[in-house]
């Protein structure tokens, strides 16, 4: 799967990239929302994983922009106690969310779920 990963924490970003690359995904990464929007405008992704708190453009804004024009699935990474923000993300069209701290295996499982749907779509 071609995945766009948006996370401002460098170490976290590298850890997730390594993990997802190991699983055979093609990863494009950004550390801020502005850069993510540019990537979304220039490329087509099968899945977007975005943090909520990002510099320049927030994760919620990214969800809104993406869902206005495409149906690309989005997984939102949120922190504990951001229940209202998660609701907002779902209202904007987010497909799933993971609360930090999270288990990398859990993230992989959730991506696999989207990968299955993606493969099904391709088969059809």
């Amino acid at each position: 799967m071609k995945i766009l990963l948006v996370e401002d924490d460098q170490l976290m970003l590298k850890t997730i990239i390594l993990r997802l690359k190991k699983e055979g995904h093609d990863i494009t990464s950004c550390t801020d929302g502005k850069e993510a929007i540019e990537q979304i405008e220039n490329q087509i992704f099968d899945l977007i994983i975005t943090d909520i708190m990002l510099p320049y453009v927030s994760g919620l804004e990214i969800v809104g922009i993406v869902k206005e024009t495409t149906s690309t699935p989005i997984i939102v990474l949120s922190s504990m106690g951001q229940e209202k923000t998660i609701e907002e993300a779902f209202e904007l069209g987010a497909d799933d969310y993971i609360t930090k701290p999270f288990n990398l295996t859990e993230l992989s499982f959730r991506i696999k779920r989207f990968a299955k749907a993606y493969e099904l779509q391709l088969a059809i």
Binding site: M12, K100, P101, F102, N103, T105, E106
Partner: peptide, 15 residues
């Protein structure tokens, strides 16, 4: 600090 920052965000085997 880098380790602590990562620990706050991860669970399971990685943590």
């Amino acid at each position: 600090n880098l380790l602590l920052q990562n620990k706050r965000q991860l669970m399971g085997f990685a943590a």
